[in-house]
């Protein structure tokens, strides 16, 4: 995992398993569930659709939430994306 230091310190308040799901499901799942974590907390999305590598940061930009970073999952191909709820 290669998260920024502060994200590594703060564990995610919620983890969404979108492994195996294709566009746009990981984004829809993230949008539906980010409200479940308190403001300022981190939500993590596990996904293996390569489109999520650009879609999750793009979504964060559109929704003005903070994209904290992404880490590669091992051994399975996939990524863990961390997003901090801003409001």
């Amino acid at each position: 995992m290669a998260y920024p230091q502060d994200a590594a310190v703060q564990p995610p308040a919620l983890r969404i398993d979108a492994l195996g799901k294709k566009c746009p499901l990981p984004i829809i799942m993230l949008a539906q569930r980010i409200g479940e974590v308190p403001i300022g907390n981190v939500i993590e999305v596990l996904a293996d659709d390569p489109a999520t590598k650009t879609d999750v940061p793009a979504w964060c930009g559109l929704k003005s939430h903070e994209f904290v970073g992404a880490g590669e999952l091992a051994p399975a191909p996939g990524w863990a994306f961390r997003i901090r709820r801003s409001y």
Binding site: C23, P24, I27, I28, L30, A31, Q32, A58, W59, L62, K63
Partner: peptide, 12 residues
């Protein structure tokens, strides 16, 4: 439908 749902999920 993919773009419509993604648009709404992205705050549009």
């Amino acid at each position: 439908l993919i773009l419509a749902t993604t648009g709404a999920a992205s705050g549009l």
